[in-house]
């Protein structure tokens, strides 16, 4: 008998292997944690050279973004991310990777309509909704402060 769509979905779920989360979650935790540790090390290093804490934090972000972009260009970041999962996606390095890889990929369609237009293909939604959310929270904060 031909199965219904619902029955077929059930068969499909039985046939499809799931991600082994007992392996992927610890890996994401360790790799993501290491990236954060590296970030902390940069902050400490910059402070050691007498940079103010807030400036050191900004410098740390800049350094991580640069490193992730460089590693993307060298085709290394995606190899780490294959194991890192959310551990490499969530930190600022993931954002850097998303922008750099799009720039690299669409360069073949030209600097304007290719690279320029498509550089934010993946990171764009983060910027759009990040800005929208911050405007919304700003507005809420404004209203609360009225009282």
């Amino acid at each position: 008998m031909k199965p219904t769509a619902k029955e077929y979905d059930k068969l499909n779920q039985q046939a499809s292997k799931n991600t082994k989360s007992y392996i992927t979650i610890p890996k994401a935790f360790v790799i993501g944690g290491l990236i954060c540790m590296l970030g902390q090390a940069f902050i400490d290093l910059y402070q050691h050279f007498g940079v103010e804490k807030s400036v050191a934090s900004t410098l740390c972000s800049v350094t991580l973004v640069f490193l992730a972009s460089l590693l993307t260009g060298l085709n290394v970041y995606n190899k780490i991310a294959k194991h890192g999962g959310a551990g490499t996606l969530v930190p600022i390095t993931g954002f850097s990777n998303a922008v750099t890889c799009s720039a690299m990929e669409f360069k073949s369609e030209g600097l304007i309509l290719g690279l320029g237009a498509k550089i934010f293909t993946i990171a764009g939604p983060v910027i759009v909704y990040g800005l929208a959310a911050s405007a919304l929270y700003g507005l809420i904060l404004c209203i609360i402060r009225l009282f």
């Binding site: 499809s16 292997k17 799931n18 991600t19 992927t24 993307t72 260009g73 085709n75 970041y77 995606n78 780490i80 991310a81 294959k82 890192g84 999962g85 490499t88 996606l89 993931g94 990777n97 998303a98 750099t100 890889c101 799009s102 690299m104 990929e105 669409f106 293909t121 993946i122």
Partner: peptide, 16 residues
């Protein structure tokens, strides 16, 4: 590049 994501994007492929 046509159906999914740029090659150098750090993503994970599901087992299926």
């Amino acid at each position: 590049r046509q159906f999914r994501l740029p090659l150098a994007y750090g993503g994970q492929r599901p087992p299926t």
